[in-house]
């Protein structure tokens, strides 16, 4: 569309700038708060310009003094949980979508709708029975307990189903004539052709896993198993002493980094995966 209406340009830019400011401002406050010492953050007005304590705070945070869980451990736990959830979700849903799209078996649609129904049952709804099951399996305070209940994914199954349905049937027939078994076809044709979708889904699911809060809070009692998102909350409830805002903000900043890195590095494939149809 080629247009030249200055007023429209002005309005659309204003809206865009406001929208960006709305997201960027809290992050800015977080960065600023992370660069001052504890005392400055208890005084009014709150600073809006960065201080000079940034590296000192960062060092202090990683020295791990005075916290229940050291930050590098919680980061590692979060990473392990997020990776297990996202990889597990992709592996399970891609296989089930493959079964649903390419095989004709009894009750196929029934199973599909069963999977679809689980969309209505997120963790929060089934949290008590799930906890009971995990506890009985002795999986409290383990990575398995953190990730397995979150691994089944109707959304991902549905997305892969849609992707597979865009792959022409002739490719499956051609590979049958070439002598490929169903699993060969799966690995040699279906997976390479869904590469971009897998990447896009990985980004979404990694962030979903990283941001989990309620479930880790329930199944972990051992501080060594805390995730970083949880630990921010724990730091706020530090008993009689003042909350250490500069360190809390620094933790939040560090916790934001991995999802940002994932998005930055996978952005290209991510956008391609959501829009591309080179088939």
């Amino acid at each position: 569309m080629i247009e030249n209406r200055p007023m429209a340009t002005f309005v659309s830019h204003t809206v865009l700038i406001l929208g960006v400011a709305l997201i960027v401002f809290p992050i800015w406050v977080m960065v600023v708060a992370a660069s001052h010492d504890a005392l400055r953050l208890t005084q009014v007005p709150l600073p809006l310009l960065p201080g000079n304590q940034f590296w000192i705070n960062l060092k202090l945070l990683f020295s791990g003094k005075g916290f229940s869980a050291p930050i590098h451990l919680t980061l590692l736990n979060s990473l392990a949980m997020a990776l297990m959830i996202s990889v597990g979700k992709i592996v399970i849903s891609i296989i089930s979508a493959f079964a649903i799209v390419y095989f004709k078996f009894r009750f196929r649609m029934f199973f599909f709708w069963m999977i679809f129904l689980t969309l209505m049952l997120p963790v929060e709804v089934r949290i008590l029975p799930t906890y009971e099951v995990i506890a009985n399996f002795g999986m409290l305070d383990t990575y398995a307990g953190l990730s397995i209940p979150l691994i089944a994914s109707a959304t991902a199954t549905f997305m892969f189903r849609q992707t597979f349905m865009t792959i022409p049937d002739e490719l499956m027939e051609a590979s049958r004539i070439d002598g490929a078994s169903p699993m060969r076809f799966f690995f040699d044709v279906v997976i390479p052709m869904s590469r971009t979708n897998i990447a896009a889904l990985f980004v979404i699911l990694f962030i979903f896993g990283w941001n989990q809060y309620l479930w880790p809070l329930l199944v972990t009692t051992d501080p060594d198993m805390y995730t970083v998102v949880m630990s921010i909350k724990q730091m706020l409830e530090s008993g009689e002493s003042e909350p250490m805002w500069h360190l809390i903000m620094m933790t939040a900043l560090v916790a934001m980094l991995p999802p940002i890195l994932v998005v930055i590095f996978m952005q290209k494939i991510f956008v391609k995966g959501l829009t591309d149809s080179e088939k």
Binding site: P168, E170, E173, S175, D178, G179, V189, M193
Partner: peptide, 28 residues
């Protein structure tokens, strides 16, 4: 199909889009 000793050419060619021409021909 693979045991019948046939090969087939499809209307929309059905070439594997992610493989080179060489790999397409060599796959079988």
């Amino acid at each position: 199909p693979k045991d019948r000793g046939i090969s087939m050419v499809f209307q929309n060619y059905a070439l594997y889009p992610h493989m080179t021409v060489y790999d397409n021909m060599a796959y079988g």
